[in-house]
Amino acid sequence: MSIFIDAGTTVEVQGATGKEGSYWLKHMKEMGTKVVFGVTPGKEGQDVEGVPVFHSVQRGMTRHPAELAMLFVPPRFTKDAVFEALDAGIRKIVTIAEGIPLHESIQIRKAAISCGAMVIGGNTSGIISPAKAMAGCIPYWIERVYKNGDIGVMTRSGSLTNEVTAEVVKGGFGVSTLIGVGGDSVPGTRFAELLPLYENDPETKAVVIIGELGGSMEEEVAEAMEAKLFTKPLVAFIGGRTAPEGKRMGHAGAIVSGGKGSVKGKVAALEKAGGLTAAKPSQVGGLLKQALK
């Protein structure tokens, strides 16, 4: 098993005929993802890699019901695309867009909460259950990173995820499902909200979180562990221990302000809750072994 997406999950792709959309739709299909239709307004009747394209999500859904919406849509149109998927009844949505207007990110998350849906992203490379299915732009073919196994991974980063997950694999493990929640200050779904899914997944034996300075998502994970909502072993790598306060380190959400969001505080909270924390990516494999002994 895996969480959020597996080999049987039906997926529709919004922005399917665009450069990025068509490129990654092809890879998603090649990996085995069940892509049932694509959406590009004005392009109904065309196909991408044998996948039929419709004007709208609603029109596609009547012919080929989908459970998950994968959005390759520019940031300015992302809110509309998310709401279109929600309106069509889809409750799992992944958006990679970087630079979604802040107040629209808030509205997207609020709508998702109201509908009982989950929106993953923006500013993420997506989600993958290795050897099963993928929604996003994840290079599943890099074997030393995207190997199938029993470790759940949650991350706020892209390149750093490759770096850290390579260490998971080097440690002799593989990945059950990897979810990039994204680097924005208002992600659609937060780390702690995914923990119950991993808790209930029999194929996930432990979870690795790849966090960074800023925000409070890592602290919320610690709270969920304290509340016993998540009881499996957890290893965290959190970047930005030596970052200066008040400087935004690349990601919109990666900033310490008013003394809040420091890595020191996050590490202390996670360790108090029984998590193990790595100072360097290369320690992650060893800590997993220790945690699973």
Partner: peptide, 25 residues
């Protein structure tokens, strides 16, 4: 390249006793 990776390299340099002239991603 990559905000998270660059931030991590920034940390690793400091752990190894080095100093950073600029952060660029």
């Amino acid at each position: 390249a990559g905000a998270g990776l660059t931030t991590t390299v920034f940390d690793l340099i400091h752990y190894a006793g080095g100093t950073v002239a600029n952060y660029l991603e």
